[in-house]
Design a protein around this nucleic acid. Sequence first.
DNA 1: TTGAAAGCGGTACCAT
DNA 2: ATGGTACCGCTTTCAA
Lengths: 337, 337
Amino acid sequence: MKIDVDKADRVTLADVAEAAGVSEITVSRVVRGMANVSQVTVSKVEEAIVRTGYVRNRLAGAMAGAVSNQIAVILPSLSNSVFADVLDGLEVRLQSAGFHSVLGISNYDSEREAQLIESLLGWQPAGLVIAPTLLSDRSLRLLERGRLPVVEVMDIDREPTDMVVGISHRQAGKSMAYYLIGRGYRSFGYVGHDIEGDHRAAIRRDGFRAALQENGLDFETEARADAESSVPLGRRLTGQILSNGAPRLLYFSNDDMAMGGLFEAMSRGLQVPRDLALAGFNGLQIGQSAPVALTTIESHRALIGQRAAEQLLGRFAGSEVERRIDVGFTLLPGASA
Amino acid sequence: MKIDVDKADRVTLADVAEAAGVSEITVSRVVRGMANVSQVTVSKVEEAIVRTGYVRNRLAGAMAGAVSNQIAVILPSLSNSVFADVLDGLEVRLQSAGFHSVLGISNYDSEREAQLIESLLGWQPAGLVIAPTLLSDRSLRLLERGRLPVVEVMDIDREPTDMVVGISHRQAGKSMAYYLIGRGYRSFGYVGHDIEGDHRAAIRRDGFRAALQENGLDFETEARADAESSVPLGRRLTGQILSNGAPRLLYFSNDDMAMGGLFEAMSRGLQVPRDLALAGFNGLQIGQSAPVALTTIESHRALIGQRAAEQLLGRFAGSEVERRIDVGFTLLPGASA
DNA sequence: TTGAAAGCGGTACCAT
DNA sequence: ATGGTACCGCTTTCAA
């Protein structure tokens, strides 16, 4: 009886077309929700689609000229929740517009980053979002060559290839320093993670220091390690500093590190901020819920992701968009300084 | 002079072939690193690739029959660091094997989940990894239809469609209860987040409770909210419970919630675990660095991601792989209970 | 509103 | 070791 059973390899437009008694192109129109198809035909086709179990092949679609709905996304890391937040914001907007992201994690390695760009570009994505590590010349050439919208995210402290969305980390560093100086602090120390890989942390530190120097001050001590930022690392380094007479306030490379500092202080029975004051960066939720809320700067990561998505969508829609978007940051006073 | 300049639309295999004076298929072989090409030809072609600035088009490649190197990944959320960890582990393995993930976030919505499956399947991925929310019948049908390897991750408490990698959340709940009972606790309360969406949290609670009942015990109080888990939520609910005479120990739906509880206890000047004991789930790093290390269960999220990747890679390699992988969990005694 | 034919850029298969 | 030729599944003209 059923003769065509085992040819059931993959349902194509042609199969649906046959089942519905129309042409392939008509089915294609229905699938894409185009207007110029009669209601009767639409229902016939939709019925056939369900009956055959057709699943749209976007590979073929994209290839035939309709653009891809994939967006390449390259981030340095995911274990750092900061980038997970950005990705989250990005996804929200992209998904609701029918786009998907293809992910690449560079692990703060600029060689790997270049490879990823090349590899992901091979999927002919409609756009690219990247939180650059360093962006080698090779990467830049690839980006310029591929005529696709590119959004660099996180810091706007340098000249964009195409578009940037983020904040000025230098300003963030300075703002925190001004605030603390305004609060009367005069004795500072710095606790940081690997600043080679994380150039944004380095920029914040530079900004903070510049502001100190404007006031004839400087870091009295620094503790650093060549590792990714983490709570235990912050705790360990803080412990080191405290062992040899600490400054009045510790500025941390970010909130993870600062939470470590806070925990170390608590463990030693220190009163924060009376005995030791602390300031971080990022505005992580957990820092704001701590017994002593962290003095920090909210960096609006999810918003950065959303805005990046909007930039791309704007471009696709053909509208003129800004090259440079500063989402701004918010100083959270907290209670730790 | 230059007549062919503006036709520089996109460099294809044909362009490279011409530039190198060989056929397209030969270039294709070089690009794919196949062995059967002479050294001389290889160098000629490689030179031509660089000169023309050719970027491989994987869309066309995948379409022509060579399989896609994309893996569809569907997760309920990214703001919950648990899934970011899984994704991280997944990426590590996938990338080193030359695969990329295409991401979908279901936001704990099973309708959305089904849409995502359908949509991502359209890219003809080589495999699918999903941390299922509920997996509607529609989703299941899609998964069965698409003859591709599917790995469900996180919990192994139910029958897999194809393969599963994770732990038994029921066991995790029970183990914690047994441990605490063994430590002498007899008075328990539960603090949880939205248990509708997060069925794994529900299973842990059920397991915990089952173990209590085996010992003639039960939760004396419960505080719950219909929101995603978070530190502030944990803190707020703990506050509620403490206001009306708390039980001896609070079991939290996860570590985020438990950190909130810990912070609330500290803020009230309670001694943990003397005045109030706390237990969580996940083994988040921050909980282990807290002044009072959290008593919790390490769920090896990154490992789950890695194993899931390995399952897929194994399938691709044609090897026989297990359908069900239990990565196990580790009880971290901590100091909070 | 509907359809026919010509690609999109590769790769599998079969020759040479 | 190298090349010719279909063909992957869809969409874009262009016609009817």
